[in-house]
Write a protein that binds this DNA or RNA. Structure first.
Lengths: 153, 153
DNA sequence: CTATATGCAAATTCTTTGCAAATCG
DNA sequence: CGATTTGCAAAGAATTTGCATATAG
């Protein structure tokens, strides 16, 4: 029943391929954004901006937002939503999948066997909705953060 | 397999009971917000503000946000997220459930049989995460909006 | 009465836009 | 070179905060 779990990122180069594949340019800021995102696993636009600036990059806020939007459209990254309402971005793998997110450190794992087909078919039948998509995110604490949290008390 | 589907709202009075139950005051603005939300099914904070102002209410923006936050904490309303990133609020029923949302008109239906227990248990085992919660939203077009959309073309 | 709740206006935070300058191919 | 991309600064949303006033209980 279980499919293999994998860290969401392949590598930065693989994500950057999406740009070349559609004729977009390979620029310094885009490399920086992708590299940082792959390294961290998941970040908000603001975190990305702050991190890069602190690392000495001269990147602008607008570029961060524009690049994240472009990469989302290309399917290279995905937006995930936290219950508190903040939007993070994670490197994307191809195909249908969902995220298991550590509420503490932001680590993201992907899984693809959401087992919802039966449920969705039943819903469609009962409600007469035409179901176009769904959105599943699972929250918890990763092993490291469980240990850390325990140690803090 | 299918449990009954229900419109998310009971009635305004029932939702307002959450306030009394915890010692909060029953005020005009709170009544207006709850009544409007029950009537419409789902609205953003801004839509709520605009609607009430147009209806002649002297309510302030801050009150709308503060009230929605309070009602969320009390479990009287819930925040739902749209794929476009906007936050709406819906009257809440007790217990575990998820939402089926019409992407067009915003109609919200609830369902409670998410059938994810097996999946979550498997994930916990494979990942060593301590799983605390999950979040499932289903998007589609309700019957009315399917008809309307078809008619427009 | 008195603590709670409100409305307003200003302050924040988050995101987008306009545009001249920089840069990838 | 020439079109795309960038950084900046300013504009716009969305949301929060401070505080004097209004009001539920």
């Amino acid at each position: 029943m279980a499919e293999p779990l994998s860290p969401p990122a392949l590598d930065a180069d693989h994500l950057l391929d999406h740009l070349a594949a559609r004729g977009y340019r390979m620029t310094g800021p885009r490399r920086q954004i992708v590299a940082t995102l792959v390294e961290r696993g998941s970040m908000t636009a603001q975190e990305l901006y702050d991190t890069l600036r602190q690392a000495g990059s001269g990147i602008g806020r607008a570029t961060v937002f524009r690049t994240l939007e472009l990469l989302s459209q290309l399917g290279a990254v995905e937006r995930v939503h936290r219950p508190d309402g903040c939007h993070s971005y994670v490197p994307a793998r191809p195909g249908h999948h969902h995220h298991l997110i550590c509420s503490d450190c932001g680590t993201v794992l992907e899984f693809s066997d959401c087992q919802l087909d039966g449920l969705l078919a039943g819903l469609a039948e009962r409600t007469a909705f035409r179901i176009d998509g769904h959105w599943l995110e699972v929250f918890g604490l990763c092993q490291d953060c469980q240990t850390t949290a325990a140690g803090q008390r």
